[in-house]
Structure formats: C-alpha cells, structure tokens
Design a protein around this nucleic acid. Sequence first.
DNA 1: AACCCACTTGCAAGTGAGTTGCAATAACTT
DNA 2: AAGTTATTGCAACTCACTTGCAAGTGGGTT
Lengths: 160, 160
Amino acid sequence: MSLNHHGATALSPPARLPDDLESTQDKIRSVGLRATPARLATLLLVQQRSSPLTHAEAAQALAAKGIDKATVFRNLNDLTEAGLLRRSELGDHVWRFEATGGHTGSEDNHPHFICIDCGSVTCLNDLQLTAGSKRESEGVGQVTEILLRGHCNNCHEPSC
Amino acid sequence: MSLNHHGATALSPPARLPDDLESTQDKIRSVGLRATPARLATLLLVQQRSSPLTHAEAAQALAAKGIDKATVFRNLNDLTEAGLLRRSELGDHVWRFEATGGHTGSEDNHPHFICIDCGSVTCLNDLQLTAGSKRESEGVGQVTEILLRGHCNNCHEPSC
DNA sequence: AACCCACTTGCAAGTGAGTTGCAATAACTT
DNA sequence: AAGTTATTGCAACTCACTTGCAAGTGGGTT
Ligand SMILES: [Mn+2]
Ligand SMILES: [Mn+2]
Ligand SMILES: [Zn+2]
Ligand SMILES: [Zn+2]
C-alpha cells in the first residue's frame, strides 16, 4: 500500500528533535558518556529511523562502518540506561530500540503495532481508550504499555 | 500475594475448571492430542499453579518424572497451540505458560492485561479505542489483538 | 488381543540473541 | 603532551529455545 510502510501515517509526524552530528554529540556527552564514533553512529542511526530498530538491524547497518556487534549492543544498552534510547520488547523475544524525545525515560512512551506476519513495527501516537474502557483497565492495574498486534496493511492486502 | 491473584477482579470470576487426572486427559484428547504421561503431567502441573510457569521451572519439576526438557518444551508449545495454555512474555525474554480458563483464545478474542511483575493475565471484557484512535490503528493494519502491560493492583499496592 | 502407524519421546547437537573477559586503543581531563 | 579511564574489537561464552533422528507408544482398527 503506502510507500512508507514504517510509521509514517498522515496523522502526526514524530516531532523529532535535531539529530545532526553536533547536537547528537552534545546529547551523548550531556549524559556522561564519551562521544566516540561508534556511539555517535549508533545514536544517529536510531534517531533517523521512524520505528524501533532491533539490535540485529543496527549491527548490520553499522558493520559497514567496521563497528562490532558487541560494541553496538553495549552502546544501545548504555544509551538506553542514559535515557537517550528506549528499549522495548514487543512479544517476539527481540529488543528494539528507539530514540526518546530527549528527556529521560518513560515519558514519551507510546503504543506500538507489530505485524504478526512480517514483524514490522509501527509507532502509534498516543492511543486513547474510551472512558469506560479506561476505567476498566485502571480497575485491573496501572497500564504502562499498549501493544497492538495484527496484520499490517502490506501483509493484509490480497496483492501481498 | 493474594490467594486469588489471577483474574480476581470483579470482571472475570476465577472459574477454574476441574483439573483432576481424568478431566485433564479428556481436555488433551478433545483438542486432538494424545494423552501421554508427559503431556498429562505437564498440563496438570501448569493447572495446579496459580501463576505462570517458565519452561525452566516446568522442566525442573518434571525432570523428577524422567521427562526431558525438549519434551516439556514441545508439550508446552503444543498445548498452547491447542488453546489449553497461554504463553506470554513479560519483557524478560522468557516465555511463561498458564492454563487458560478453557476458552481457546482465538475464538472469543478479547484484550488482555498482563502484569510485568507477577505475570498474571487478566481478561478484559470489551476494551474499545476512541474513534480517532481506532481510525489511526486501522490505518496501520488489521488489529487482531490488544495487549496492555503494566503493574496489576496486587503488585502495585505499597503493601506488596 | 494383536496390530499398526502417526504421533511422541529422549538424547544430543544446533541456533540465535545477547553477554563477557581481556588486551589494545582512544576520549576527555589536566 | 601526558595521564587516566572509558571504550573497542575479537572471540568465547551463556541462556532460552529448537531440531534431527532413531526408538517407543497411544489409541484406533481389525
Ligand atoms: Mn515507537
Ligand atoms: Mn482471556
Ligand atoms: Zn506486515
Ligand atoms: Zn501482578
């Protein structure tokens, strides 16, 4: 269907902060980490993507720059701990990483849709439950994450 | 932890089906599987537990009966596919299994809340998204499952 | 009661994601 | 420029889970 399978619906752009080389170096240093080439490349890569990246995807992309997978992993984890990335588990036993809005942690948390056919992940902007449903869910516990699973438009089309 | 942790909201009564040897054999056969000793022991074990079981826990418990871990895994997966168990992922990259109330899951599909602390799964009756959110999700694909994760009321209480 | 065979099992080896130890290297501090 | 300490590459490792295969068995059939 759409050319832009991952994430880009017409609804509202992800509102990404500046992700140029310099401001990215600053971000890294501001959380007490050294702005090494590997770290910089990793954060830039994740920032450029509109949907969460698996370690495997990141490692493959960064291998071209001669960066080792262990380094990629350590950096993804370090950046996550530092609050520049968020790590999530969407039910398929693979960690995915995406850039946070900049502020540390769980704030700009948003729902995701994962395709059970192709595994593609789409970020959703602030899904809302109806009042009654919200009440029901709150009666059960404090919801920290909303995950939708299903067939993405690419996989669902008869042509696909 | 409360005695009746699982699904013990006003929403869905515990309603555990009989889990004696005989009815358990029947359950297994009713889904087209053979009621072997290994399979029977596995289902009985999971049914007896009040919280979801990891494969490692199940394998350890069943090793005493001389059942191999690969067999345990295959059976947990087979029983899950057959709808007698539910498999869930709490965010730590370990599958956990628990007996379903009897409903096979795919037939009467409804959202679930899963506690990332204790693993308990609560069935939500009829979660609805707001019109706008529904539209957004439908723009991405056909949603077949809604999963909420968070801290259940039992785990969220200060006393817990 | 014996028979059959697809389903199941035990065992051992394999996979894949993610981690770790360590010596070499490079960022930042002074 | 030198020193300190974080970071890197590499290879080996762990952990959760899967798979291949030969031997065994559940349960329907005769
Ligand atoms: Mn996202
Ligand atoms: Mn349910
Ligand atoms: Zn898809
Ligand atoms: Zn809980």
